[in-house]
Amino acid sequence: MIEARDLIKVYGDVTAVYIPHIKIEKGESFGLVGNNGAGKTTLFRLILDLIRPEGGFVMSGEHYVMQNDDWKKYTGSYLDEGFLIDFLTPEEYFEFIGNVHGLTDGDLADFYAEFDEFFDGEILGKEKLIRELSKGNQKKIGIAAALMQKPEVLVLDEPFASLDPTTQIRLKNLLGKLRDDKEITMLISSHDLNHVTEVCERIVILEKGLIVHDLKTSGDTLRKLEEYFRR
């Protein structure tokens, strides 16, 4: 579903990302871990065509992401607050995102019903602008908006950070269900090794822009990860 080849991104004289080849299959749940500056967000931005690579390419489905916009129709993503329109209310934002993806009013109502539990009464009907909400609630909105259009590809950068415990568990269950349905390709980065091993079937460790480990999640993956990061 997602494939990158000879992908290079350089900032100044630092190579932020260098990936000779990686392929993420359709329906795969792909976890990305690495310390600060490892290049996780940079890789996601390259996949979402938000930054120009110095070399190589990313393909989504049949197309190069740089040359064709079709992937936007089936890709939901949330990396940071730059994905939110903070002077809108949550409802206005969902309506806008829904509209650009061609959702009907009925679809929107279904979406609200589906995410009612996830929002936990903190998001809808508050008459508040997104910028007046807490970081955690902003993140809930971003994640929900990414899932709203029922994407085939989902890209989330540290989705668990700054969420409250209840929402973390709910999000973990939600992503676990999506993984089991095998209909969505998930790319998730996280600093929380527990969460990421629970949600993802495959985990890649990034260090200084390079892939140093590519693991299939099994019983002792968490132990291996902890060992790697202990150094």
Partner: peptide, 13 residues
Amino acid sequence: SGFFDSLLTNNIS
């Protein structure tokens, strides 16, 4: 500028 990434990643021509 605050939400430019949102305009780029969503289905907006």
